[in-house]
């Protein structure tokens, strides 16, 4: 019984890996002040493209490279239209969400249901036999290991290095960063594309691993990109908190599957959307502390209750980079 739970938990870590790639990619992009809203489309398109490239070339690596390249290219379109042409990031991102989705379904149509390669499991000898931890963390595939490294590397880069400090600067106060010698717009281009490439890796992680293959509209990936965007907010633009959000989401999804037999009169489609009300609830929890009426209501409460609620809200609250979504012009 314990073994089953352990394997389930290891599965959660694997399921969360692509979401971690997408969420951290978006975290990096938004840290630079740019919103890439296209995630839902990008993930579908790169899942399809990565699968097709791998099938045609018989190379998993090329499949992932194709995904990363397409993800970076979509991000480049967003960077160009928003940074250089000063168009709304939300508008362009939304159009790309739909366009990439339809491109995925249209171009992927002839490849539906084909057998394809899968990333092999890669247990790490020496570490895999450690009780508990071995099964959880070291009997995974290479991308899951990379997802661990990505969490740590992104955190270290953003919060512990000088370029990372600059990255925070161009998202928070671009004018100040500019005065300190940062080429704000070029850095925004670069970080948007790096973030896009990471999102583009998430697609093939589904089609070449967890949900192997391409099945068109029933691939079951529609919606994942939106979840990743919400987790970016929930994660407060911090890679570690974002990863926590991704694991929490994967855990809830797993519970949904495990508990399904207990709710047999509920169709499976209903349980599949359970993440979305939870997404709203999560966003409500992290945002409600920012609203005016809560401040006003709290002011009317007795001191002890007020302090307790304010503390809870402050712990939950996340605030976006101050210049998120606004173009920068160096006068």
């Amino acid at each position: 019984m314990n073994e089953i739970i352990l394997i389930g938990l290891a599965g959660i870590i694997a399921v969360a890996a692509p979401i971690i790639f997408a969420t951290i990619g978006e975290t990096i992009t938004e840290r630079a002040g740019v919103i890439n809203l296209s995630l839902n489309g990008t993930i579908l398109l790169t899942a399809m493209a990565g699968f097709v490239v791998s099938v045609k070339t018989d190379s998993l690596l090329l499949g992932f490279l194709a995904g990363a390249a397409i993800g970076a290219f979509v991000a480049l379109i967003i960077a160009f239209t928003s940074i250089t042409l000063k168009q709304s990031q939300v508008a362009v991102g939304f159009v790309l969400t739909l366009l990439c989705r339809d491109l995925a379904y249209f171009l992927g149509n002839p490849f539906m249901g084909l057998p394809g390669p899968r990333i092999p499991s890669l247990p790490i000898s020496g570490l895999k036999d450690i009780p508990l931890i071995g099964t959880l963390f070291f009997k995974q595939d290479i991308l899951v290991y990379l997802s661990f490294i990505l969490i740590a590397a992104a955190y270290w880069w953003i919060f512990k290095t000088r370029p990372g400090l600059m990255l925070q600067g161009i998202g928070e106060r671009p004018a100040a960063a500019f005065v300190r010698g940062a080429n704000v717009n070029r850095m925004r281009y670069i970080y948007t594309m790096i973030g896009g490439a990471l999102v583009g890796i998430a697609g093939p992680m589904y089609s070449l691993s967890a949900k192997a293959g391409w099945k068109g509209t029933i691939t079951g990936l529609d919606g994942i990109g939106w979840i990743a965007l919400a987790i970016t907010i929930f994660g407060g633009w911090n890679p570690i908190r974002a990863a926590f959000g991704a694991y929490l989401f994967a855990l809830l999804q797993w519970l949904g599957i495990v508990l399904q037999p207990s709710f047999q009169n509920i169709p499976s489609q209903v349980l599949q959307v359970a993440p979305f009300p939870l997404m709203i609830l999560a966003l409500l929890l992290v945002n409600i502390g920012n609203t005016e009426w809560v401040d006003r209501t709290l002011a009317g409460l007795p001191e002890s209750a007020r302090r307790f609620i304010a503390q809870v809200l402050r712990a939950l609250r996340t605030t976006p980079p101050a210049s998120l979504g606004t173009p920068f012009e160096n006068e």
Partner: peptide, 29 residues
């Protein structure tokens, strides 16, 4: 959700879309 919860209307709306789809399927089946 937007006004009193601070939830961005894009995410609030999107979540409600998925809920409405589930509601439809539940009613039909």
């Amino acid at each position: 959700l937007k006004i009193y919860g601070g939830v961005n209307e894009i995410f609030g709306g999107l979540g409600m879309n998925f809920v409405s789809t589930a509601l439809t399927i539940w009613l039909i089946f």
